[in-house]
Design a protein around this nucleic acid. Structure first.
Length: 347
DNA sequence: GTTCTAGCAGGCACTTACTT
DNA sequence: AAGTAAGTGCCTGCTAGAAC
């Protein structure tokens, strides 16, 4: 056996195996970020500005800063609040400030982004050079994180057979934004543990109405769809045409409008994946995953499984689609029984 | 009895940062 | 781009209550 306990990924059309290697690493030293005092004026990016109402405190990343850091040290300051309204001080780290500015910069044109972040960061550094270095390093950090997310998402999506691309919006009569987010998450989570659903999704705010909705790739096992499906024939003002969407009554009654689009093949899956990826790169929102979505499985690889070595120094192996990995013993318990069953049918 | 929703505690799977 | 550690977000598993 040439390669034992190899990590096997599926890239959508080929199985790629990466042989196990070990590399000792030094313990990590996380840098402790210095806390600085940031002065926001009213016209700047402030997160509070873009939050539409008291119910709209949904930005998980920035909530803590806004709520915790804003309070003045002593009560006596409050008398002058109205006079000093345009300025408020917050105690946050440079990295937190960078993250806020980075997020804000996504709305600007590409060539303006770096300058915008530089201007926002400059007051908190001694020199231009220091600022540029810091901004460049953190731009790289963000870029790496996005790549890391993209790879993780692609691998997870390819290793699972999703059968629907769904969009859920909420009806104001049924939910506030906050309760919609909470309830839908809870519902999907319950369906995952109880009916074997799997999902990968993202929360999105539509550009025109700023209304929150959820886009998700869903794997819904046969016979586990709640309620019943029905066709909804409506006129789309954004598309300027009549469209028929497939909706589910269970979700319609509990949340509001929804759209179930069946994923027939790899092309449909890729299209949906591209959509989710494009959005998280733009918004910086986290991807929402159900549990039990492996990125790879472990298998021993035999000579006859390998088409050819690829990549640097044969660190990667391209495998035949029907390579012999289905010995239960070699899966190391990393893949759920459903995935094993599906992988069998795929390969 | 069944199904669904919700709250909670605790653990672990995931994200991020860092190194190579 | 892979391996790994740290830290934490959120999933699991449980319970309870409501609705049918």
């Amino acid at each position: 056996m040439p390669y034992g306990e190899t990590k096997v990924y599926f890239d959508g059309s080929h199985y790629i195996a990466i042989p196990h290697t070990t590399r000792p690493v030094r313990p990590k030293r996380y840098q402790v970020e210095e806390v600085i005092e940031v002065i926001d004026n009213d016209t700047s990016s402030s997160v509070a500005d873009e939050t539409p109402s008291e119910n709209g405190l949904e930005s998980a990343v920035s909530d803590d800063n806004v709520l915790v850091e804003e309070a003045p040290a002593d009560g006596e300051n409050t008398a002058t609040d109205s006079e000093n309204k345009p300025k408020k001080a917050r105690r946050i780290t440079r990295k937190e400030l960078f993250d806020e500015l980075y997020q804000e910069a996504q709305k600007k044109k590409k060539h303006e982004r770096k300058k915008f972040i530089f201007n926002g960061m400059r007051p908190y550094f001694e020199t231009d050079e220091e600022t540029i270095l810091y901004v460049n390093n953190n731009m790289d950090r963000k870029k790496r994180n996005v790549i890391s997310r993209r790879i993780r998402m692609t691998r997870k999506a390819n290793l699972q057979r999703f059968n629907y691309f769904c969009t859920f919006t909420y009806d104001s009569k049924l939910h506030t934004e906050e309760s919609f987010r909470k309830c839908l998450k809870k519902t999907l989570s319950n369906f995952c543990s109880r009916k074997g659903w799997k999902y990968i999704g993202v929360w999105e705010r539509s550009p025109e109405k700023e209304r929150l909705h959820f886009h998700g790739l869903l794997y819904i096992p046969d016979g586990t769809m709640p309620g019943f499906m029905f066709e909804d024939n409506t006129y789309s003002f954004s598309e300027h045409k009549r469209q028929i969407t497939l909706q589910n009554m269970y979700f319609k009654e509990r949340f509001g409008r929804n759209d179930f689009e069946a994923i027939e093949d790899q092309t449909g899956l890729r299209k949906a994946m591209r959509y989710i990826m494009k959005y998280i790169e733009k918004s910086g929102e986290r991807i929402v995953y159900s549990k039990g979505l492996p990125q790879f499985f472990i298998s021993d690889i035999m000579d006859e499984d390998i088409i050819c070595p690829i990549g640097m120094e044969e660190q990667k192996l391209l495998l035949f689609d029907d390579f012999n990995c289905w010995d239960e013993g070699c899966l190391m318990g990393q893949v759920s029984p459903e995935v094993i069953a599906q992988m069998r049918t795929v390969s």
